[in-house]
């Protein structure tokens, strides 16, 4: 498959730094994610991957740095300046979590409909038309149900539409979470370890789903993952973090052979050979 379908950047991260008191979780990281590409962020535990996501989705305000989302039709958004709920609504960035966060007491279908809340809220005139069952609202709701059904079909959960989301199996919950994120109609989908805890078959299904999302929906995907077969199998571009710094950035082939990456993952036999900035980090204070 071609590595670069388009060269249009979707997300530009510049000099992102996040400090928590004295702890530097991310230190001057810059990278770009292109439209219609799967960009993976990898790195050992504690490298700051999830912190990048939290900055992108408004959970944290970065200490330093600029996060620009280049929306294909609505222009640029500076994510670090936006309120948490504005980011999915206007900049159209969606995310999933390492630990699944569905609405467990709502039905599978409702989980997908509530993700289209803003369209429905506008159509329902902030609830009142909805109560008296006005036509415009009914049509908007039908559209929302259609989209939800379409995604249920794609993840193969149509039969379980009326189940409580909390009763689904682990793998199904993961796919439902991705479907819910897609129902917000994002231009950038951020997935935090979507393959964690999946068996090899579920993991292969996930790969297929993610590739299909990239092809059919034409959006960018940002992926944090530890499973190297997933990462190497589907990403177009990989960013490697270690101790909050970017140590490598390129195609899967490039990253796989990068000595800095091998060193970060496997360690070094002789400490003298470490580059000074890595050695400084490793030395106990």
């Amino acid at each position: 498959m071609s590595a670069h379908v388009t060269d249009k950047p979707l997300l530009t991260v510049e000099h992102l730094t996040m400090r928590f008191g004295g702890l530097v979780a991310i230190d001057d990281v810059s990278f770009q994610a292109l439209d219609r590409e799967i960009t993976a962020i990898i790195g050992p535990n504690g490298a700051g991957k999830t912190t990048v996501f939290n900055c992108l989705t408004g959970f944290y305000k970065p200490t330093v740095g600029r996060l620009t989302l280049h929306h294909p039709s609505k222009g640029d958004f500076l994510l670090e300046r936006m309120e948490g709920f504005d980011i999915p609504q206007h900049a159209r960035v969606a995310r999933t979590f390492q630990n699944i966060r569905l609405f467990p007491a709502m039905s599978v279908l409702e989980n997908l409909i509530v993700a289209q809340h803003n369209d429905l809220m506008r159509a329902s005139g902030y609830t009142f038309y909805g109560l008296i069952g006005l036509k415009g609202y009914k049509r908007a709701e039908e559209r929302a149900v259609d989209r939800a059904r379409h995604w249920l079909d794609r993840i193969g959960l149509t039969k379980q539409a009326d189940w409580n989301a909390g009763n689904l199996s682990y793998g199904d919950q993961r796919r439902l979470e991705i479907a819910r994120a897609m129902c917000t109609q994002p231009v950038l989908l951020c997935l935090d370890e979507p393959a964690a805890g999946l068996n090899p078959r579920e993991s292969a299904d996930l790969n297929k789903l993610l590739l299909a999302i990239r092809e059919d929906e034409g959006i960018g995907v940002l992926l944090i993952e530890h499973h190297m077969d997933v990462v190497m199998g589907i990403s177009d571009h990989i960013v490697v973090l270690d101790y909050g710094r970017k140590i490598s950035d390129g195609t899967p082939e490039f990253v796989r052979n990068d000595t800095a990456v091998i060193r970060a993952y496997l360690g070094e036999e002789e400490e003298e050979e470490l580059p000074p900035e890595v050695a400084k980090d490793l030395k106990p204070n």
Partner: peptide
């Protein structure tokens, strides 16, 4: 049945996640 009710229940279950799918909390 309404969008507000759904958002209300979503917020009740997970306020942070509701914000992430664009519900004005």
């Amino acid at each position: 049945r309404t969008a507000f009710g759904r958002a209300q229940r979503a917020c009740q279950q997970d306020l942070g996640m509701a914000a992430l799918i664009g519900v004005d909390v």
